[in-house]
Design a protein around this nucleic acid. Sequence first.
DNA 1: GTGATTGCAAACTTTTTGCATCCGA
DNA 2: TCGGATGCAAAAAGTTTGCAATCAC
Lengths: 151, 151
Amino acid sequence: MSISQEKFKQMLKEKGLKVTNQRLLVLEVLAAHRDRHMTAEDIYELVKEDYPEIGLATIYRTVQLLLEMQLVDKINLDDGCVRYEIGEANDGEGEPHHHHHHLICKTCGKVFPFRDDLLDGLERHIEEETGFHVLDHELKFYGQCKKCRKK
Amino acid sequence: MSISQEKFKQMLKEKGLKVTNQRLLVLEVLAAHRDRHMTAEDIYELVKEDYPEIGLATIYRTVQLLLEMQLVDKINLDDGCVRYEIGEANDGEGEPHHHHHHLICKTCGKVFPFRDDLLDGLERHIEEETGFHVLDHELKFYGQCKKCRKK
DNA sequence: GTGATTGCAAACTTTTTGCATCCGA
DNA sequence: TCGGATGCAAAAAGTTTGCAATCAC
């Protein structure tokens, strides 16, 4: 049982919400595929293996809950569906919004993660310049991956 | 008549495509509202004022064309619909992908533009490190704007 | 026991597509 | 003229919602 699952149970109880199999399984599936960028449908198919009676609506409702609890991040790869991945900081500690960026290949469609903290300085700069308080960011790069370039 | 409209006509002819009223009007509406982030529906409503018989499907098809021609940029503000804005570089010259970033207020929903070229260095860094050739990027910051912070 | 949660189906929203008609070159 | 472009309606795809049944506490 992962740290985030224990944390999740505790957070649910604190909010007066119930710990259900469905909720635990959705988080488990996200944790087990942290390398992937999962759509609601992806999660649905995987949870169904353990719990065939689950409905797609429950996936949407649970993912919404996990977003509010900041246990998962939402990303949009511009292919028409929203994707979810478990937050990086939520197995251990650390600032909640230090997730990675995404390199999206326009040729093959593959998505590569990329870590960089360059934006911290930029966030401070924005706050000084505009008074806008930055809580989170999303950065995507579009281009061509190594493999596709060679062809 | 703006430079981008002339450019658009020429690009259409080069591709063997036709210059139609509908296409010109969609570009015109986007150019006239470069400060806004327009959905297909927004464009539809505005073009209808001059050309009531236009169909929404034509807006979608035209916007798709403008994206391919790199005359407009696509942005997604996570409110369930894709938005379009005319490319900054396309009235004059310059690198095509130097558009601005967006500061999205989680409280009032307003979107503020922010200019910064910090990402140029990061793009070079990515190419060296991963071999991924970056053509474009999209950067969004989520947080709270000056006004909402005061409350 | 009781209120939150779930599954199902229907509704909704945004975007795409097929096709007959129309129009620019 | 003729192939591309358009408008309309229908279809598709993703997500949300209402409600009765169910389950966690």
